[in-house]
Design a protein around this nucleic acid. Structure first.
Lengths: 198, 198, 198, 198
DNA sequence: TGGTAAGCGAGACGGTACGTCCGGTCTTTCG
DNA sequence: CGAAAGACCGGACGTACCGTCTCGCTTACCA
């Protein structure tokens, strides 16, 4: 077996790792994902190219990791507000999500991330596992509470509920096919609750 | 005023245009969007690179046009089946859509198209106008008929209905977050009709 | 016989011909011979490229013709001064030649011409015939007079005399291997006269 | 200060350097200087284009270096024959020079070199220093011996002697204005010795 | 505690593609 | 029918990065 050489993670230089992820994030913001090159990341980070190739298989992977690092490592799960009023709580969250998507500062990097995810199934899996899952779990926890409170059909598939709730917003943002207003966020909550009411 | 030089479209060589779009489509199928180069398209089409740069601003634009050309030019609008039963009709269409997305032959090119659209707002606009709109119009026509038949709330925003119906499927495909089965298609129709019933 | 198509010179547009030669001369002065392109000449002259290709076989030929046109057409021969004192007369001419070579305005075009002549034997022949010959004939006429006056060996090969007289100056200029001063010009005359004295 | 990036010569790959110079020489011989492209040199040498651009500023510089490499590096000076008879010795050398110029194998490359030298003063300086100087020094050494033997005027400027001796031959070759025969070589020696005799 | 092997910065290398320029040919339109 | 305009195929330009490959140098582990 040829068996690719594996570098020893114990010896990894944490200083370099950070510099690389920081440089990646900065460059994406400054010039856009498509124009970021590994050479530029290495130069900006003051690092040899080989150090990047040693630890990451592709530009996408570096960028992805830079997102992971950014989102902190929420070892303990996130929790959504629970006032007992599922409609109010969801509208709060949905409006926040819509606002985040509309924020031009988040625009470029999130588009970069999505672009990479579409065509790289490995990164897509990582994305689901590391970035989407924790958030989705928190949302599902809140929905489960609503089910128990009789505000949602008890047999509703919560993954499906999440999709109906978020996918329209996501698609509208991705295709720039309409404005992401608070009213729109509210409308999606209303529709979802109507579709899945007990 | 810098005023870019404009080539004269009247003198355009239709033979070359076709060869380029054909070559683009072939290459995407053969090696995948990311690995297609303008150089390769020109070589395959038996065309000078300048002839591509003269008429298209980017690789994405060429690829996009090759899709447009493929989808024919449905001068006259498309029409969806109308048996009078909106649920049955929608399930038919949704199952077909799910099947299309699941078809590995369509996989690569559609992902390429979406990847390009996400980060190029100009192409996104063209996409909405030239590819999405005609199809959406046909769908909305069918929904409107359902409204008149009292199968759908008469005040429902049809754009929103379409989003709730299709976006979950689209997102699931994009993120590969679940299987695109006929059951799933049916479920989306059921949910949408419940959400927007009169 | 395939017999290349020959355009009919009678129909040639004199206005275009002039514009082309003028444009060529201007561009050589402005950007240097090597960077002049046929496209640029055509654009500057307000002429189609084909009009250049129709009448000239190469860029070198155009440039050469632009020199010919510049040097006027001395239908009637040139004459050198003849004071009876061959030494004085030659020194006058040689100093003028040295000064001309040293003039930075003449530098670029003459180097361009020579560069072209070196590697294109056709142009070299034209150069000898059209540009060098008339001048050389005038010089030889003066030398012949000196022979008859007993100031030069009567059996001297006048072509050789010219070479001994001018070639060192020419080579020094071409290779930039030394200054082209009046003293140097004088020295060459002295040496030549000594070598070929009766 | 813009300060161009300097590659580190210590890291230079000698194998590539040789391959490039060899390829350049071969291609000049095969297709002629004007038609040699850097791309072709790189391809023939099995080298990336950047490796050429990293170490040479222009095609001319590569070609020039390939000449330098060819002429070996005569660390120790060259010496001309010295039989005590300056006329015989010079005729021997001049005939050899004439023969070399007339050799069609040397024709193309030497013309290429001269063409490049004319319009690039940097290369001209290198030419004088690296190629012409060593040879000229050897010639001047022989002439100096002749001066001490009383065969040449003791106050003769040896640079000038060399010019009178060689420039006519050089010009005749450059302009193809006459045959380069042994008789012509002899005549130039005779004339020069007469001009500079004590 | 000194030797040695890994990771590291630097950057040269063989390559591929970029987007531009121009060479020479061909076609369309006008006078 | 010559000429202007300019699109076309082709090929080279010089640049940017790719991913791989040495080079010393520093650093951490083991003997």
């Amino acid at each position: 077996m040829p068996e690719a050489k594996k570098p020893n993670p114990a010896r990894r230089n944490e200083r370099s790792r950070h510099a690389i992820l920081d440089a990646a994030r900065e460059l994406i913001r400054e010039v856009g994902y498509a124009k970021v090159s590994i050479e530029a990341i290495a130069a900006r980070a003051g690092v040899g190219k080989q150090t990047i190739y040693r630890w990451w298989p592709s530009k996408g992977a570096v960028v992805f990791d830079s997102f992971l690092a950014l989102s902190g490592n929420p070892e303990e799960g996130i929790t959504l507000p629970d006032t007992g009023d599922i409609e109010a709580d969801l509208k709060l969250v949905m409006r926040a999500t819509a606002a985040e998507f509309a924020d031009p500062d988040f625009e470029a990097p999130i588009r970069a991330l999505n672009s990479e995810i579409i065509s790289d199934s490995g990164l897509a899996a990582q994305y689901r596992e590391k970035l989407a899952r924790p958030v989705d779990d928190a949302k599902k926890a809140r929905l489960r509470a609503a089910q128990q409170a009789g505000q949602l059909a008890s047999d509703a598939d919560l993954d499906l509920v999440l999709e109906v709730l978020y996918a329209p917003l996501y698609q509208r943002w991705l295709h720039r096919s309409g404005p992401l207003t608070a009213e729109y966020a509210d409308a999606l909550v209303d529709i979802t609750l109507r579709a899945f009411r007990p």
